[in-house]
Simulated assay, not measured.
Amino acid sequence: MTRQRFCTVESLEVGDPLPGTGAHPQCNLLISWPRKTWSRSLRIANDMEPALVDRIETLVAGGRRVNLIHRRDWPQDRHRLYLFPENLWLDVDREALPALLDALVNRQSLTRWSPASLTGSLILCCTHGKKDKCCAKFGYRTYQALARESHKQQSQFDVWESSHLGGCRLAASVIVFPALRKYGRISEQDVAPLIAHEAAGRPYLACYRGYGRLTPAQQCVEIAVLEWLEKQGISAELQIDDAVAQQDGAVVVPVSWYSGEGATGYLDARCETREISRVDTCADLDEGPSVSECWFVSRLIPR
């Protein structure tokens, strides 16, 4: 009998790293839409009217990422929208969506739809099985665990299923808004500490892919420095500067850290690349792996 293969399993087996894979646009629109009608596209459902599709594609062309989200208890013809970095949410009936998206395209006021400021946070877990089977196999059970644990901890997180978040091979894949922190390979054992860390405003390093606005090298540095500080019992905020290219192809990233107790410190992180042979999605399994370049931190140098 042929063993069923999953890109997530093969990614883990070849040592494909999580750090440096957390890139995500800052400008986002999330639209609740019944998952049963999702297509392979992260933003278009099979039952969307052409006029609505056109408006979504216009928003994307203007620089806003659009994802579909789903929750089983949400009405099918009533849509929850979230806007980032505006940190707004609003609920509209389906017939109002085209006009609302027109207002977004034209940068007009949304006052007529009564937007509200987001006071808590969102956790999105990719369950987009039509995009990649790993997101169905690993994503859905993680979503369920996140929803249960969020309720148990009485946290301020709204937990939703999501369409494709990037990095199917890293399922279960999660992003936290508005913090814009990405996670991967989340097991059920990781769920409780992840929510507890995020509730405290800190990344859960065991599954952390990086802060979405940093470059891959900077994300690797962010995680390496936070791990270094954690071993010393220090909780700190980081200031990560631009990478400085070195003659041998490496980069050096200057980092400053500031703890709540007033302590400060400065580091230089040397980053290098290595090649890894991997498949990016389950669709690539038949073709086999290709070579990709990954960043890693080779040295932390205190100043």
Score class of each variant (00 low, 15 high):
A199K: 02
D284L: 08
V244I: 12
P17F: 14
K133M: 09
V253T: 00
S187F: 10
S41Y: 13
S150I: 07
E188L: 14
L110H: 00
Q144W: 09
D280N: 13
C135R: 07
S155T: 14
S292I: 09
D73A: 12
E237A: 15
G201N: 07
P17G: 09
G63F: 05
C220R: 01
N67Y: 06
D248Y: 13
Y258F: 14
T111D: 07
Q232I: 03
P19L: 11
T119K: 14
P289D: 01
Q232R: 14
S163N: 08
L101A: 02
A263S: 13
L170T: 04
Y258W: 05
N28C: 13
D102A: 06
A61T: 08
E230M: 06
G201P: 05
G139F: 12
A196R: 02
Q144I: 04
I31A: 01
E287L: 13
A103R: 10
E237Q: 09
W160L: 12
E275G: 04
E293C: 09
H151P: 00
D132V: 10
W89Q: 11
L229H: 08
Q76S: 09
V221K: 03
Y208W: 02
S187Y: 13
H151R: 14
A245Y: 03
K36L: 06
R40H: 15
E272T: 07
S235C: 05
K130I: 08
P25Y: 12
Q144V: 11
S117C: 06
W295K: 00
P34R: 05
T58V: 10
K133F: 09
G265I: 07
T119C: 12
V174N: 07
L180E: 00
P216Q: 06
P17W: 14
L229P: 05
D47S: 11
G210D: 02
M48Q: 11
L146Y: 03
L285Y: 11
S121I: 02
A192T: 15
A206K: 08
E222V: 03
I44P: 02
L205R: 11
T119F: 03
A45G: 13
A269D: 01
A96G: 04
D132K: 12
A192C: 12
L42F: 15
G260Y: 09
A172G: 03
Q108E: 07
A51Q: 11
V14M: 14
L104K: 04
A236G: 10
T8Q: 12
R64F: 06
T8M: 07
E198F: 06
K130Q: 12
G201Q: 09
D158H: 15
V252L: 11
L42H: 15
I301R: 14
L146E: 01
V297M: 03
I56E: 00
E227P: 01
P193Y: 07
V60C: 10
G20L: 13
I276S: 07
D286A: 14
P50T: 05
L42Y: 15
D73I: 09
D284A: 10
R202N: 03
R64N: 04
R71M: 05
D286T: 08
S121F: 08
W74M: 09
R274W: 12
G212H: 01
A206V: 15
